[in-house]
Computed example of a mutant assay.
Amino acid sequence: MQLETYISDLLYRYDCVIVPNFGAFLTHRISAKLHETTHSFYPPKKALSFNEQLQTNDGLLANYIAEVEKIPYIVAVEKIAKQVKSIKSYLIEGETIELNNIGDLLLNKEGNINFEPSQHINYLTDAFGLSQFTTTQVSREVYKESVEAVEKVIPIAITPEKRVSTSSASKPYFKYAAIGLIFLTIGGLISSNYYGNQIDNHNQIAQEEANEQLDAKLQEATFVINSPLPAATLQVEKLIGNYHIVAGAFRVEANSDKKVQQLKDKGFKARKIGVNRYGLHEVVYSSHTDRVEALNTLRTIKRTHNRDAWLLVKALD
């Protein structure tokens, strides 16, 4: 039994997963941040930690294993205990236990378990599709200081009175030309609006007459079909369910359409389920109404096709 697989599945939906008689894996949300020195952007995520003091069985892990493997609850508890015993024996011998997609476990000199979380997976489903990236620093030039420096060296003096009086005296006909241009513009606008209204009225009257003629023709016409076509019955499978196995999310919709077609060519009932809160087009392998069926399908896909596939619980409109 791969215990880390079941723990990893539960960490997407719960903040605490207790392994009886061993410890608890905890998650807490960390907001997105920007490193001021390296200019690197880090998306929001769930940080993973381990608490050796929490060992009381709360039933979450055992019930999940019993449901997935379709075994009694007590048998699931026994399988967990056997796996924990094996892990502890390896730790006592000084070996490092590597839990896939979770982290590494190692005993320190005091006999306590040290945990180093994995950095290759983000258990925050809201941040799916986001990754770390680095931007270049934006440099801004201060133009105001440059202008002030130029003004100190070359002062500029403007005399409005002289400019106005000279231009008015030398070219008085500009005033009359401006007034005439304003009247021409207003007259053109009024004429254009009047002409446009006349065209609209003409088109409306013509449309009403055409509609009346069409109604008269339809009332007089008689439709007779001598050889009607046979009725065609199409069976379309409706993809429903709130449990979706996600294959990926794409910023460009054309890429999501291409992914859907690729999965359909491989026999999956792939489709798009809409755009998430980050503007990404989500593509799923399939949708299911039964959670156990969805988990079994997810395990098969992770084993045979895509180990990064994950289960999304979402009610679609």
Rank of each mutant, 00 (worst) to 15 (best):
Q2F: 10
T5F: 08
I7G: 07
D9L: 05
L10E: 04
C16A: 14
F22T: 05
F22N: 05
A24L: 12
L26P: 07
R29M: 13
R29F: 15
I30K: 13
I30Q: 13
I30N: 07
T37H: 14
S40K: 15
K46P: 01
F50G: 04
T56R: 10
A66C: 09
I71V: 09
I74H: 13
A76F: 09
K85Y: 08
L91V: 07
I92S: 09
N101K: 13
G103I: 01
L107A: 03
L107I: 11
G111I: 14
F115N: 02
E116M: 08
P117L: 06
Q119K: 14
I121K: 15
I121D: 11
Y123L: 11
D126R: 15
Q132M: 14
F133M: 05
Y143W: 12
Y143H: 12
S146M: 09
V147N: 09
I158A: 04
R163W: 14
V164Q: 13
A169D: 07
K171R: 10
P172D: 01
A177N: 00
A177V: 00
G187Y: 03
N193S: 10
Y195C: 02
I199N: 08
D200T: 13
N203G: 00
A210P: 01
D215N: 10
K217C: 01
L218Y: 02
F223R: 06
L234I: 13
K238M: 07
Y243R: 04
H244G: 03
I245T: 05
A249N: 09
F250W: 10
A254N: 15
N255V: 04
S256W: 09
S256R: 06
D257K: 12
D257R: 11
V260I: 14
L263M: 06
K266F: 05
V275Y: 06
N276A: 00
N276V: 04
V283F: 00
V283R: 00
Y285W: 01
H288E: 09
D290G: 02
D290A: 05
E293H: 08
T300W: 15
W310G: 03
L311C: 02
A315L: 07
A315N: 12
